[in-house]
């Protein structure tokens, strides 16, 4: 009796594992009709993504029709949410107000140029999809011959206040000092547009910002700007989702896996002059 019972149990277990395993192993597919079974809490809901539309090439207004949005995050959100069959909208606000609104539940997620940081992961869950780097933008032809961080010594460099670029520049400042070279003249700025004006007016020799943006600017304005060099920062970009929204995390994760598998994500990167090599496999990070 006991042997038969255990055999039955083993068979049931094996069958169960098989089913579960196959479900796990199978690539996710787009089944927009099955929202209610796949992501029950999203059925009939409109998901709200927060973004600051001053962050090309991630989220930006359409030049031809200002009431529309463009960018990597916008195109990816459309592909992913259409795949899941869930309605969504972007709500636009100033950068620093977006994560607090995700934490308080006023909006569901932030989909923009959002870096993963352990501190941020305490308040939001991430679905990662892109590697980040730092780009250095200089006037076309790179007149100051800035080709690596060491060349910053004695030059003027602009970067966003509190950014990873600031940390990198200040680290280089120490190097310049210890090697007895001229110091870097640092120019931190509040917002990107202000930084760009510094470069345009010749007040700074170089502008440091997210690589995606620098590449975008250099390629779109080749007569004005060049990319001097880039640094692989090791930072990664993902969607930040409010805690406790497991179905939304799963829907975005599934959708990104689909568009990574069928090449859509790389096409989107290419559309915005972003290096397709920056794509990283989708990954959920909850801390």
């Amino acid at each position: 009796m006991s042997v038969r019972l255990s055999l039955t149990a083993a068979a049931a277990l094996a069958a169960g594992l098989l089913v579960a395993g196959s479900a796990f192993a199978a690539d996710p597919t787009c089944e927009p009709d099955k929202v209610a079974t796949k992501y029950p809490s999203l059925a009939g809901k409109t998901v709200t993504f927060g973004a600051d539309p001053q962050t090309p090439p991630y989220v930006v207004r359409d030049g031809a029709d200002l009431n529309k949005l463009n960018g990597i995050a916008v195109d990816m959100a459309k592909a992913v949410m259409d795949c899941a069959g869930v309605k969504y909208k972007f709500t636009l606000g100033a950068w620093s107000g977006i994560l607090p609104a995700v934490s308080s539940g006023q909006i569901d997620a932030m989909w923009d140029d959002l870096y993963y940081k352990p501190d941020r992961a305490k308040n939001v869950d991430y679905v990662m999809y892109m590697g980040a780097g730092t780009g250095v933008l200089v006037p076309a032809g790179n007149p100051q011959k800035i080709e690596k961080l060491d060349d910053f010594c004695g030059k003027t460099v602009a970067y966003g206040i509190g950014s990873i670029e600031e940390a990198a520049t200040l680290k280089q400042q120490e190097v310049c000092k210890s090697e007895g070279k001229a110091a870097i003249n640092t120019m931190p700025f509040q917002d990107l547009a202000a930084g760009l004006r510094l470069l345009e007016s010749g007040r700074t020799d170089a502008l440091m910002w997210d690589l995606g943006y620098i590449d975008f600017m250099a390629k779109n304005n080749s007569t004005k700007y060049s990319r001097a060099f880039s640094i692989v920062s090791g930072f990664q970009i993902g969607v930040g989702i409010g805690k406790g929204k497991e179905d939304l995390v799963k829907a975005i994760y599934d959708g990104i896996r689909v568009i990574q598998a069928d090449g859509t994500q790389k096409k989107i990167f290419a559309k915005y002059n972003t290096d397709p090599a920056l794509m990283i496999p989708a990954e959920i990070r909850t801390k």
Binding site: P53, P56, V60, G93, S96, I107
Partner: peptide, 19 residues
Amino acid sequence: SIVFVNELTFRSQQIVGQN
């Protein structure tokens, strides 16, 4: 704009962000 109100100044910044 910190609470997602798209009024005049924020809209002008968005256009500048675009072009």
